[in-house]
């Protein structure tokens, strides 16, 4: 079970969190013209990375904040966690 540092609450066990997918995906602006390809990329197409990966988790059974977690998908090592408002550097 992973041990994730919630930027709001501190180190917490994985079972308090729920996984939310790739954190680098940006939703197209509402009302903007979006090509089929761009929309497909936003909704469906994801890289299945081996290695470092920025992903979203929600501290569901804690502060309910969505956070960004940089995790190695192969080793589960967690390098960094950010608040929702913080940009991935």
């Amino acid at each position: 079970m992973l041990h994730i540092k919630c930027p709001h609450c501190g180190m917490r066990s994985q079972n308090e969190f729920s996984y939310g997918g790739d954190a680098s995906v940006k939703r197209p602006q509402l009302g903007s013209e979006v090509s089929d390809q761009d929309w497909d990329n936003f909704v469906y197409n994801r890289k299945s990375l081996r290695g470092k990966h920025w992903e979203l988790w929600q501290h569901l059974s804690g502060c309910r904040q969505w956070i960004k977690v940089e995790r190695d998908t192969a080793t589960h090592e967690i390098f960094k966690t950010l608040k929702a408002s913080e940009e991935i550097s």
Binding site: S18, G20, R27, L56, Q58, L60, R64, Q65, W66, A84, S85
Partner: peptide, 13 residues
């Protein structure tokens, strides 16, 4: 609820 929180916290803060 999670859905609303997702959009409010991440997409349209």
């Amino acid at each position: 609820l999670s859905h609303l929180e997702y959009y409010l916290q991440l997409v349209w803060p």
